[in-house]
Amino acid sequence: MTPNTASPGGSPIVSLRLRKEDGTAYFRQPEITAALLTLSALPDNDLVERARINDSEHSDYVPSECVLYFVRHPPSNNTSTHCELFEILRQRVLAAVPVATRKLTGSGKPAESAVDLDIREAVLHKFQVLLCKDRKAYEDRLDFYECRFNAALASLRATARRDVRREAARFEPLELEAEPAEPSPEVEKALLKLRAPAPPEGCDFLYRSKLLRAISLLPVKEQRVIELILQGYQIDSQDDGEPTIAKMLDCVEKTVRNRRDSAYLKLHDALKDEQENA
């Protein structure tokens, strides 16, 4: 392993080995490298104590990229420290795969979503496999996680969600595409706000979260239409060279509009409580 930087305590920070398609190297974000330099100089107990802080707004918070680094490159020979950091890393993975609570039909009692639990289990398992492979021989896919931990984990989550959906679809009855319905102006307005990179003034964080969560619960075909609308693609265009949602999803314009309208109705229902409370 090639050390690239030395911490104040003298221990080197190990470089990432992963290369992009063009041959250039992947690098950690500058703030992660800076944090690693500081954290490497800490005694084991202090490092673990700081890594236990869950609040990402806290000044002593240790980013997940750094926790992963110390699991791959233990700060000392102390097995107990290594084990604690390993468990903290698992907690970070678990936190990044939330499980929704829904009311059970009939009893009305709250219960964790079985689909979300399956996704969490699959993600945790795949991450564990990567860690084990890395322990045996350098696993460069873990370098993606040291670049941007939550983003790389989103990739695992998306794959797990796809697999769980495929499995669930085997037991679902075949249904016709949703009937066309009038799009809800409230939902269109809320989606416009979502296109902004950061929550704009007046768009409550909880409301945004609820909308994003509702989008993630849409049937996958409708979710793709909504995602492409949010990315600013047109449903259809006179210009043959313009990428449109219809072309990207290999369907006709009418189908895209039906999916969009059906999604809007579902989002409208999901947001109704929020709007009534506002």
Binding site: A151, A154, R157, A158, R208, R213, S216, V220
Partner: peptide, 16 residues
């Protein structure tokens, strides 16, 4: 496209 949608969800997860 699915991953793009999944990445959008990170906004809610990171602030949980």
């Amino acid at each position: 496209i699915d991953l793009s949608a999944e990445l959008r969800l990170n906004e809610t997860i990171e602030k949980q």
